[in-house]
């Protein structure tokens, strides 16, 4: 199910402003790739181009190539809606739909694809998705309660359940733990390690320990100054990046000398 993503010479714009320049990176299937870097370096912007969420912002556009298993996601006739159905996303702040119950939240994406899902199938899917996000035991007795009644960490796992319920090939996570306490963060990190058996995972994080703990490969983004575009400095196996990076900037950032 998991697929690979190959990015080649990608430039990302907000109207005329070049926000991220010249990114080429290969994201391996069934692995966790972490994007690290200082604030404003464009790692979240880059993440959002991988499922075409970037272009939701008026004036935002890209040049270059993003291919999933060889298929260009920005090719002619490719529907961004279809791209987003196969590449799921988890946001920085937990965002379950407040007007839906826990179960309805899990089914939200499925109902878009397949409106006539039978009641039994729906129940099974709710359970398997919530088990998949390690939330089932905490919420199984209150599936009809609003999603907003859960704690922040539980809400984030609900969002993960919602994302995996549509069985995407890739899961993008934009600082999924930055609004959570350490215990909830640990729960999500454990979950990420389990999810990579079935999905390709890309995670943006400000927390370098987190990148070191959960990821197989790490990409370091940096920005030379305000007004200048962010760039991908280097990408390598996480162990290499944290022990002997090739670039001086990477070493400075990882050892805490700036950022």
């Amino acid at each position: 199910m998991a697929k690979r993503i190959d990015v080649k010479d990608l430039n990302i714009y907000y109207s005329d402003f070049l926000a991220v320049a010249d990114v080429s990176v290969d994201i391996e299937p069934n692995s966790v790739t972490a994007f690290i870097g200082p604030s404003g370096c464009g790692k979240s912007t880059f993440l959002r181009t991988l499922n075409r969420m970037h272009e939701v912002i008026p004036g935002a556009r890209v040049e270059g190539k993003v291919a999933m298993d060889g298929v260009d996601l920005y090719g002619e006739g490719v529907d961004p809606v279809a791209v987003r159905r196969s590449i799921g996303m988890v946001f920085q702040r937990p965002n379950p739909f407040p007007t839906m119950s826990i179960a309805e939240n899990v089914l939200a994406g499925v109902r878009l694809n397949n409106r006539r899902i039978s009641k039994g199938d729906a129940q099974d899917l709710v359970e398997s998705s919530l088990r998949g996000s390690n939330l089932w035991n905490e919420v199984k007795d209150r599936l009809t309660r609003p999603g907003s009644s859960l704690s922040g960490g539980q809400q984030q796992r609900l969002c993960i359940a919602r994302a995996i319920a549509v069985r995407p090939q890739v899961l993008l996570m934009d600082e999924p733990c930055s609004a959570l306490d350490p215990i909830s963060t640990l729960a999500i990190e454990d979950l990420i390690s389990e999810l990579k058996d079935n999905y390709t995972i890309v995670i943006v994080t400000h927390n370098m320990q987190q990148a070191a703990r959960v990821s197989d490969r790490t990409a370091f983004f940096n920005i030379a100054g305000s007004g200048l575009p962010g760039r991908l400095i280097e990408v390598d196996a996480t162990s290499t990046m944290f022990s002997s990076p090739r670039e001086k900037a990477t070493e400075d950032y990882i050892s805490g000398r700036f950022g």
Binding site: M53, A82, F91, L112, V166
Partner: peptide
């Protein structure tokens, strides 16, 4: 936040409106 949640699930604009805006 919720509009983007809907779009990221593969909602069209109208589905996003029905999921996140109207409720």
């Amino acid at each position: 936040l919720h509009e983007e949640a809907a779009l990221a699930l593969g909602a069209t604009r109208w589905e996003m409106v029905r999921m996140a805006v109207l409720p």
